[in-house]
Write a protein that binds this DNA or RNA. Structure first.
Lengths: 197, 197
DNA sequence: GTCTATAAAGGGATAGAC
DNA sequence: GTCTATCCCTTTATAGAC
């Protein structure tokens, strides 16, 4: 049993994650993390040798197991079109529910060096991409699976990336922030396009 | 005629823009800007009262007129499908050529407060969205034009947002960074989807 | 309009007591 | 394992000379 007023690494990281998601690496000080955790800044250095290490550990915790539900769907043996619909729905719900996760992915893709991009790739993107590209090859074997996968995932993600600016855009409605509404739309869009062909 | 070793506001902002695009607001110090400009940090305070004002002016300069070529295409009277193809191609080339612009848009959507989001909306998104939603209503009047517009733009943007992590993803090829290749793919994808319908 | 110098605050990180 | 106190550097911003 751990004493009551001591904090584990996981507890610190769990508090640090939303801070980094909201303001980025250079926008969050060790003092700010310590304040939220409820300890002194010096205490953080007992758990982590420096800020960078704390940050990398936070990313590792933020990313681990996140793609599991998606991978499970992608590796199931339901019909390809239904699998796609399930995948899109699950991805919508994931990024809607866990805004920190989407923000951190975006920040890491912009700010990450090679090793940080590798962590993001191996923990989040790699097997997810493998599954989506395989699904694309089943559904549309004539086209480049990589390009299709990016287009599909992008057409989901952008709905949530643009959520903050939505109030200032024409034609926007409240329902557009509902992950189920977005999922239905994107599934239809991905399968049929603008169906003018 | 301005003396040779004095810098105009525009020159300062032109140098500051790529710095903010690369490292974000809190990742760039006034000293770092001054160093790149070739003046002392104090000189910057002659042109701008504080860092925030300099940053906002940099965003205003970075965004102004950026969407002009896109709006021109969208308001032309060529056939809708061709207009869509031209729009997608132009957007691909814009974000490929001007990486700072795409990064700043992303950062502003994550970090911007209300007034910054309003600037981004009015300078970049608003009339562009108006054009794309109108185009969507011509091409596919049965579906929600807002959702379609987001999906279309997102399926373009994500190709460039993920450029940094591409080397670590399966199935990626060099040609995937070619804006013309991406444009052809996305145009086809948007019009036809996975064409299983 | 730019400079040097400097104030004042904040940031990362460490020392040593408990 | 956490604290207070502190070091040292960076950062924002200003003062005043040229």
């Amino acid at each position: 049993m751990r004493p009551l007023n001591t904090k584990s690494k996981e507890e610190i990281l769990t508090i640090a994650i939303p801070l980094f998601a909201g303001s980025g690496y250079s926008g969050v000080s060790m003092r700010a993390i310590a304040l939220k955790v409820g300890v002194s800044a010096a205490a953080l250095y007992h758990h982590f040798p420096d800020k960078q290490t704390l940050y990398l550990a936070a990313m590792a915790q933020a990313f681990v197991d996140k793609a599991d539900s998606l991978e499970e769907i992608l590796s199931s043996r339901v019909a390809p079109e239904k699998r796609l619909a399930q995948f899109i729905t699950c991805l919508c719900e994931l990024v809607h529910k866990d805004n920190d996760f989407s923000m951190l992915i975006q920040r890491e893709m912009m700010d990450g060096d090679e090793s940080r991009l590798q962590l993001l790739a191996s923990e989040v993107y790699h097997s997810l991409f493998q599954g989506v590209t395989e699904l694309c090859q089943e559904l549309d074997p004539k086209h480049d699976p990589y390009l299709l996968a990016i287009s599909i995932i992008g057409s989901v993600m952008y709905h949530f990336q643009t959520a903050a600016i939505r109030p200032y855009l024409p034609h926007s409605k409240e329902q557009h922030s509902d992950p189920q509404v977005v999922a239905r739309h994107v599934t239809n869009f991905v399968l049929q396009g603008l169906k003018t062909g």
